[in-house]
């Protein structure tokens, strides 16, 4: 049977003193560019650490490529590329040293491909990492990961420190890998504008819970953000209001119901960021039966 999910999570729980990640069910499709969004401290990095089995979970199951991420850890990690925000290679090494080290760690390491990316990113082979700029360090991370052609690339805020030109170049490479090679990319970032351009699928995590996880187009089609004056009598059932915020005399609501808001000013250029902001800042406990 053909597999269609790259990551499958069930009843995952990780509790810290002041925070709890709780995911009942989460399936992320294979061969897609997946965006993991959420504010700082929402649980994105915790989720990534759990995926990589870097931290102990309280309960739950995680399957990557259909395999349990604990029992098949080494096998899975051979097929995963991870890029964090910083460069973690010892500063005394240069990119040639990195090649000599990493080729022994990854079965599918391709030196030719690595050298190609070094040249493409203008990374000098014999310059020590301590002399690299922040952008160069991040580009080195990408060159390393792309060199062993992982089936899943996980990026944890990895593009945040890059200037827009390099960021676009990297995103273009990742998009190309997804579309032409059928690989999967999971990008955790707070730069949502990037994801709006490239992501096929979005998972929004808030306060340790998954708020939505769906194809980007489905999300954009299923939500409506509307703004109306407080004096307008608009009947909206409470259950249809996902979140709302007050703006002086106006109320902005996030709803899934397209009906009954004809008097309202509907945001035509609604973005994922708008939805996320309303979710994070908004409230959903008001009685909307008679505004």
């Amino acid at each position: 049977m053909e597999r269609c999910n790259v990551i499958e999570i069930e009843n995952l729980k990780k509790a810290y003193k002041n925070f709890e990640l709780n995911i009942k069910e989460l399936d992320l499709p294979e061969g897609k560019f997946i965006g993991l969004i959420g504010e700082n401290g929402a649980g994105k990095t915790t989720l990534i650490k759990l995926l990589l089995n870097l931290i102990e979970r309280n309960s739950g199951e995680i399957k990557i490529f259909g395999q349990d991420n604990r029992t098949s850890e080494i096998d899975i990690k051979n097929k995963i590329g991870v890029i964090f925000e910083s460069c973690y290679f010892p500063s005394c090494m240069n990119s040639v040293d990195i090649e000599k080290m990493m080729c022994k760690l990854y079965k599918s390491w391709d030196t030719h491909r690595y050298l190609e990316y070094l040249a493409r990113f203008d990374l000098p082979p014999f310059k020590k990492i301590r002399e690299y700029s922040r952008g160069m360090k991040l580009k080195l991370n990408f060159a390393v990961v792309l060199a062993y052609e992982p089936d899943l690339i996980i990026l944890d805020e990895a593009t945040s420190g890059l200037d827009p030109i390099i960021r676009n170049e990297i995103l273009a490479i990742l998009t190309d890998i997804v579309t032409t090679e059928g690989k999967s990319v999971l990008l955790s970032t707070h730069i949502i504008s990037d994801l709006e351009k490239v992501a096929d699928y979005l998972t929004f995590i808030h306060d340790g819970n998954i708020i939505f996880s769906d194809y980007k187009d489905n999300i954009l089609n299923s939500y409506i953000i509307a703004r109306f004056h407080k004096r307008d009598k608009i009947i909206i059932p409470q259950e249809d209001v996902v979140a709302s915020i007050y703006e002086r005399d106006h109320i902005v609501i996030l709803t899934k119901n397209k009906l009954n808001i004809m008097k309202a000013e509907i945001f035509k250029e609604m973005s994922i960021e708008d939805i996320m902001l309303l979710y994070v800042k908004g409230v959903n406990d008001r009685d909307w039966s008679d505004v």
Partner: peptide, 16 residues
């Protein structure tokens, strides 16, 4: 050196 560069944490993501 490992703590300074963060390698001690990064290596956990490697297949070893």
């Amino acid at each position: 050196s490992d703590e300074k560069s963060g390698w001690d944490k990064y290596v956990w993501a490697a297949p070893i």
